[in-house]
Amino acid sequence: MSPFAWETTLHWSAVALYIAGIVGVAYALIFDRPGRRAGALGLAAAGLLPHTAALALRYVHVGHGPYMMQYEVLSSNAWIAIVLLLLFLWRRPDWSPLALVVLPVSVLMLGFGLFTNPEARDLPPTLRSMWLVFHVLFNKLAVGAFLLSVAAAVILLRKLAGASSPLLDRMPAAATVEIYTMRFVGFGMVFWTTTIGAGAIWAHQSWGRYWGWDPIETWSLVTWLSYAILLHARLFFRVNARATAWGTIACFILSILTILVFPFVFPSMHAAYFQP
């Protein structure tokens, strides 16, 4: 089998295990079988093995990290989101309903990536920088944290709507869920800020300026400012939990557009590095 065939097989094996994990978690929570929950999350964790192997194989095959093709970027984003989810659930098992949002979104990302052009691209010399590694790594961590914040926001909205089920009742109260939503947003902000900073240093190294209002740079700032608006609105105006949840979802959509859509839409110095 060619390396690409191995990669594809491993990726699809991971998808199968993640889907099995989703079904398992849904069964455990909806039918109130807490004993099955650990097994279901174990399936999702098992999915990380072929997923990690596929990413490692890709690295060996193309000789660089997941920076250039949508295929690589989406797969690695999904990997980070699932790792963050499982780490959090390991410490807070009661929050397993988060998996019902994070896992499907990650599987969608992974699946979409598998249908994009997987052609290997050579790394241009401007991308040979340690700052690129930080820039990309923290960006992926930010996506993972923001995805967790959205999952918490969705659960918060359900709780505020008065929905009741064994699944929701096991979760902490709405006020706690709201605090955790903001906590995930906060973690995302830390990672997103680091992404912008590492990008600025790298831009100074490669292009001679740390900030140039390039469209993708500007969208990343808009995303950062949008989260700042959300946080300040909550702080100053004590907006209610429902508005906080909707604001979190809107900001997440913006962050995803910034990472996955805008680089392909707006003519930008960054566009040369992103390949669909």
Binding site: I179, R183, G186, F187, V190, T193, G197
Partner: peptide, 18 residues
């Protein structure tokens, strides 16, 4: 900024932030 964001969002109990 990075230090501040880290302190603000990771080291402080969130209810106090309000």
């Amino acid at each position: 900024v990075l230090l501040g964001v880290t302190v603000r969002f990771t080291l402080i109990p969130l209810p106090r932030l309000a």
